[in-house]
Amino acid sequence: MRKTFLKLVPLCLMVALINPAFAADQGGKPSVNQQTQQSQQKEANVYTGQIVGKSEKAKTVSIEVGKGDQVKTMMLKFDEQTKGVDQAVKGHAAIIKFEMRGNNKYATEIKPKLAKLPEGVTEIKTETLQELLKNHTDMFLVDARPASRYGQSHLPGAVSIPVALLQKKQAAALPLNKDKLIVFYCGGPT
């Protein structure tokens, strides 16, 4: 039953995938040269996307690939030879390499897709953030998840600014002072 809620857990990574800035390093994504793209797709049997399900009993893993209307759920089998089966966790972004055996796709390797920080932006860990809050450091703490998730549970003093809202309101949603410390968080690299 816990799964239902996991479904609602927003994902930093999913959005990172949708953002073109992050998609650039993925094979098979639209590129300038169509031919290169096609040959890449043929060679590289790779799916990148969010894991939407895994069954140990049936030995299958499902991953959501593509964007917008093109979103498709692909199901792959895995076996004892598959590397990193533990890395396939529902709701997390992953990269799955696979091969065809007959009509079935078999995962050969599953790797988590890690979040990438924009240039000039660094990470803050729990302890440091806790310190900042304890010392009442002057900062602007932003919850980037959908408003419903913010409603259920947010960090002390956080403001709700989902990605769509920031895209719409731009700097109007942020402090006037551009030197002010801003800390963004979401549902984790889940």
Binding site: T122, E123, K125, R149, L181, I182, T190
Partner: peptide, 16 residues
């Protein structure tokens, strides 16, 4: 947008 002092708490609300 020109903000200079940005941190990301990657571990996020679940870790908190």
């Amino acid at each position: 947008l020109g903000y200079k002092n940005i941190l990301v708490y990657l571990d996020g609300e679940p870790a908190w």
